[in-house]
Design a protein around this nucleic acid. Structure first.
Lengths: 130, 130
DNA sequence: AAGCATAATAGTAATTGTTATCAGTATTAT
DNA sequence: ATAATACTGATAACAATTACTATTATGCTT
């Protein structure tokens, strides 16, 4: 496996701007200074880096996938108003995992949890997006 | 709101064959006896019936949406081998909901939880799909 | 039962997010 | 420096879903 400039740029973009960006957001951010960067390259590398465990892929049921430089055990909440993605620590998820395998005999390999709602900031303010 | 034959057929198909079908599965099943049924009609009605609360839409992050005639509080597990969708009762999810709003101040409006893995049947057998 | 307003349909085209293809280019080991 | 090959950019392909529109069905009114 070779390490190209593009791959390094893409990884750093996710690490340095931890906004849980989509592939397109990464692409747009880097495009300005690298006009011939290709969207396919961004997708390919984000997926590769996720498989290698250097990034976490956040799958959102009704939206684009997002990517997270933080790879330890945590979950996400998507605000419907400002559409930001927030980290969420959930001890109950550990209990849930063992509960499911005990009760149903399912061997879990992946848990996709998407919490949607209105975040604290948006709740206390006027709507930012509508 | 008018109640067309198509809408009734589509609803009954989901209610009578509780396999958590995709829009395309509903379409294919009904198409044989109704050759000029349109896929768009199936999508439109499944979504409408879900909004009306007569069906539950199951959003799967990396696959097609599925529909469930059972609309009470429960979750789903998708088997990676046989790709069936199983109902899962999770008391911990109630705890999770109040936990999230208490701890983060997020008002939750929708929870999409997709459990992936290998179901009990597939675990005890030879792989059915690969 | 006939007429009428309108909601719903079939068929098609458009959209969106993502992946595949492939000729040319960059990277790394020798 | 050279050679092997992994990677890139550009474009096409793809799958799931939604939008569009002329036509048809539904249900109300009389």
């Amino acid at each position: 496996m070779k390490f190209s400039k593009q791959r390094e740029m893409i990884l750093n973009q996710v690490l340095n701007y931890p906004i849980h960006p989509t592939a397109d957001q990464v692409y747009t951010a880097l495009k300005t200074d690298n006009p011939n960067l290709s969207l396919g390259t961004v997708y390919r590398n984000l997926n590769l880096l996720s498989e290698m465990g250097m990034l976490m892929k956040i799958r959102i049921a009704d939206g684009s996938d997002r990517f997270d430089g933080r790879t330890d055990d945590h979950y996400h909440m998507v605000c419907e108003r400002c559409s930001k993605v927030y980290d969420v620590e959930l001890d109950t998820m550990k209990a849930l995992k063992s509960c499911v395998s005990d009760k149903y005999g399912h061997a879990l390999t992946e848990i996709t949890l998407t919490l949607k709602g209105v975040c604290a900031a948006c709740t206390s303010c006027t709507p930012q997006t509508e």
